[in-house]
Amino acid sequence: MAGVTPPLPSFVCERFMLKIEHLTKIYDNGVKALDDVSFEVPDGQFVAIIGLSGSGKSTLLRCINRLIEPTDGRILWNDIDITSANDEELRLIRRRIGMIFQQFNLVKRSKVITNVLAGRLGYTNQFMSFINHFSKEDYEDALAKLERVGIADKADNRADELSGGQQQRVGIARALMQDPELMLADEPVASLDPATSHSVMKYLELLNKEDGISILCSLHFLSLARTYSDRVIALKDGRIEFDGPAQDIDEVRFKEIYGEDAVRVEIE
């Protein structure tokens, strides 16, 4: 099933929701993390980004919502230029782009429900945030999202009381609160055991299939990319080394991406 273009709703067909043009990022210390990266993502696609540590996966994802400022190039999202947006415009763009992280990035001392509600901040008046106020609809929505990822009973627990897999599901619920069109997932399962990894990836797959959310997900394991993604982009030293369906990656390509000494490790 990998590599087969999933059936998409007709109205999004052949529209590129994300266009990346000649994206380059050079850090202040001179490290070139991204080197002239260009690709396009049609609406509703599940894209896996693979590559060695330091190949630029995280930088690429963070440039898209400008947690990291790109040095050069353009990022167009639904024909809006993200790279030239001012603070206010960027905020409006960011709130439709969800993001989940390798370290989950929950506020550990806050309650689970508060962490989920934080996904709604982009839609909340900041003076209301001063008194920690969210609307009743937001509360109900947050509980529904927790229900969806299967941990509604943990809503009042502190975030650090949850296991890793549960924390990542809170992270997904938080991103869902944004009502996202695009989900960036930065190594979402790298800190989890194989079984939990699959359960988290299944939730991402569900969002992709049921809600039509496009997903850009960086992964360590090719096997995961093969199982869940429509398309694989492989980065090496900040350049695109491969772009295509996962089953096209044979032994030769694998060595090109991961280096001569690499041995395949599977995660089942």
Binding site: L67, R94, R96, M99, A118, Y123
Partner: peptide, 11 residues
């Protein structure tokens, strides 16, 4: 990390 996450929600 949490700062990054909350920033990315458009806060």
């Amino acid at each position: 990390g949490p700062l990054e996450a909350i920033q990315s929600t458009g806060a």
